[in-house]
Amino acid sequence: MQIFVKTLTGKTITSEVEPSDTIENVKAKIQDKEGIPPDQQRLIFAGKQLEDGRTLSDYNIQKESTLHLVLR
């Protein structure tokens, strides 16, 4: 499924993921596309910071959901 990751600069990254993918996994995909190390990434969805060990389905993230990427 496709999800969108919006950066603070307003850029939107499209990523191909599975509901069973972990947040860590998603951060790795963002690193592949943007070159941002996962340890600098914080992903936010519905006002919550997403934890690395959890999966997209844990957070009820569905296709075409938009996550927000904040850098630390």
Rank of each mutant, 00 (worst) to 15 (best):
P19V: 08
H68V: 13
R42I: 15
V5A: 02
E51N: 07
L43F: 05
I44D: 03
R72L: 14
T9N: 13
N25M: 15
P19R: 07
K29S: 07
N60H: 09
Y59A: 02
S57P: 02
E51P: 02
K33T: 12
G35N: 07
Q41V: 12
S57D: 08
L43E: 01
S65C: 04
K29D: 06
F45T: 00
T55Y: 05
Q41Y: 15
P37Q: 07
I3C: 02
L71F: 09
S15Q: 15
H68C: 11
E51M: 11
L50H: 01
T66Y: 07
V5C: 03
T14A: 09
K6M: 10
G47E: 04
L8Y: 13
Q41H: 05
K27I: 08
D52K: 04
E51R: 09
Q49F: 14
A46R: 14
V70I: 13
H68F: 14
D21C: 05
T55L: 08
L56E: 00
D32Q: 14
I3V: 06
K11N: 07
P38C: 10
R72D: 10
E18L: 14
D32Y: 10
R54G: 06
T55E: 03
R72Q: 10
G47Q: 04
T9E: 11
P19A: 09
R54E: 04
V5G: 01
I30P: 01
L69Q: 02
F4S: 05
E16A: 09
L69A: 02
I3R: 00
Q49N: 12
Q41F: 15
G47H: 05
T22F: 08
D39V: 08
T9K: 11
D52I: 04
G47T: 04
M1A: 03
I23M: 03
I44Q: 06
L71S: 08
T22Y: 08
S15T: 15
I61A: 02
P19D: 06
I44G: 02
T12Q: 06
V70E: 10
R42C: 15
T12F: 10
K27V: 04
T9V: 08
E24C: 08
F45G: 01
L67A: 01
P37E: 07
T55N: 04
T14N: 06
K33Q: 13
K29F: 11
I30K: 00
S15L: 15
L67T: 00
T66D: 03
Y59R: 01
M1F: 15
E24D: 07
I36T: 07
E18H: 14
V70S: 07
P19E: 08
V17C: 08
Q40P: 02
D32W: 10
E18W: 13
K6P: 01
V26S: 00
V17H: 13
D32A: 14
I3Q: 00
P38I: 15
R42L: 15
K11G: 07
K11P: 04
G35L: 05
K63M: 09
I36C: 04
D39F: 11
K33S: 14
V5N: 01
G10T: 02
R54T: 05
D21F: 08
E24G: 13
D58R: 02
I44K: 04
D58Q: 07
V70R: 11
T7W: 14
E24A: 15
T9H: 12
D32L: 14
G53L: 08
T66W: 08
K33Y: 09
P37M: 07
N60L: 06
L71D: 06
N25G: 09
L43I: 07
V70P: 00
P37F: 06
E51F: 08
H68A: 06
K48E: 12
K48S: 08
I36D: 03
S15R: 07
G47S: 04
L67P: 01
D39R: 11
Q2D: 05
V17Q: 05
T7S: 07
F45H: 06
K29L: 11
Q31P: 03
K29N: 06
D39H: 12
